[in-house]
């Protein structure tokens, strides 16, 4: 979908993220607007956005794993939790600097995730769903009974600091999380448009054919799993330091279900889709929790969110399986020729 007069002659051109000057302008101005958000948005909105950044990073991971490589994982929240605990323990108990601990906790989450994936990756079908479900329960059980994780008390996580700079206010934390989100988005985009991404798609579409073409299916699946969990770990680590206190109840099975929902609603196999899915649902949830209701009615708000979430997933699956991202593409296509369109 490019304006007339733009010809791309190489594969590299075709795969580039930003293609025209207009796109550069829009991208840069959007970035500036977002970075300056703390100056014109309410504090609460900034807090919501900071946390959404962490969730988004984790959603990017499950998009690669489930959307691109076709491996359904129902344990993303647990792997997110592994990252959160790893980072909290590394920074608070072992004194590792934050900047290393973020990436270390991503690697730890990747290792743990792959360990749960390995038994089932050899099998076709839905063994992976069951294995990751088991992983979700086992990890949360272990986390809530280990001594070094703080058990049911939870574990503290200090404010993140890089060198002399401490991120201890709402805007600062937002900038930190947002810059990590940009970094991880770029990384995700590069993975999926590179060699590994093509291998993921081949394995998802037909693994036997992929095998014949010379792709090591087993290794590709494991790599997809590791990448998905690495992203979850990074997101979890940022979330831990953002919230300051982590507790096993933060990483429940229903949260894992929500991750799957985000990518379905946003659109499978699309990095932009993650943004749409998360933003859509965070908005709905915020609107519902901001409704002024009495103490008796407030208890119906969260169940309604759950029902709405499920209904939207099913509606999207039935009527528009490509998700909101596809809608957005259609909208863009419509607007490109808007005043002078033809039927």
């Amino acid at each position: 979908m490019d304006p007339a007069g733009i010809y791309r002659t190489t594969y590299l051109d075709d795969m580039s993220i930003v293609r025209t000057k207009t796109q550069w302008t829009i991208l840069i101005s959007a970035l500036i607007l977002t970075v300056l958000a703390p100056f014109y948005l309410s504090k609460n909105l900034i807090d919501v956005m900071s946390l959404s950044c962490c969730i988004l990073i984790s959603t990017l991971g499950i998009q690669i794993l489930t959307g691109y490589a076709g491996q359904i994982s129902v344990g993303q929240a647990a792997f997110y939790g592994v990252g959160a605990y790893a980072s909290a323990i590394l920074v608070n108990d072992l004194g590792v600097p934050f900047i290393f601990s973020v990436f270390l906790s991503g690697l730890i989450a990747a290792a743990v995730g792959s360990a749960f994936g390995i038994p089932s990756l050899r099998l076709k079908g839905f063994y992976l769903v069951m294995a990751t479900l088991a992983g979700q329960i086992i990890i949360i059980y272990l986390v809530s009974h280990m001594h070094f994780t703080g058990g049911m008390v939870g574990h503290k996580a200090n404010y993140p600091s890089i060198g002399p700079l401490t991120f201890d206010t709402g805007p600062r934390l937002f900038w930190l999380n947002f810059s990590f989100l940009l970094l991880m988005t770029l990384m995700a985009k590069n993975i999926v448009r590179g060699r590994w991404g093509r291998a993921f798609i081949a394995v998802r579409d037909n693994d036997l054919a992929a095998n014949v073409m010379g792709i090591n299916v087993y290794r590709t699946k494991i790599f997809a799993f590791a990448v998905g969990c690495f992203f979850a770990g990074i997101g979890g680590s940022l979330a831990a330091h953002y919230t300051g206190m982590i507790h096993p109840t933060q990483f429940t099975l229903m949260d894992s279900i929500w991750y799957l929902g985000y990518i379905i609603i946003g659109g499978l196999s699309s990095i932009t889709g993650c943004y749409f899915g998360v933003i859509f649902f965070v908005t709905i949830k915020e609107i519902l929790t901001h409704l002024p209701v009495s103490a008796e009615m407030a208890q119906y708000i969260l169940p309604i969110t759950d029902v709405a979430f499920g209904v939207v997933i099913i509606l999207i699956l039935i009527f528009d399986p490509k998700g909101l991202n596809h809608r957005w593409e259609l909208f863009k296509g419509y607007y490109r020729i808007w005043p002078l369109g033809y039927k």
Binding site: L51, G154, T243, G244, M245, I246, H247, T249, Q250, T252, D255, T289, V293, S294, A295, A298, Q299, I301, L302
Partner: peptide, 12 residues
């Protein structure tokens, strides 16, 4: 009133 649903994340 905000429902926290037995979830620390909601509390935060």
């Amino acid at each position: 009133v905000v429902d926290t649903k037995y979830d620390s994340q909601n509390v935060i």
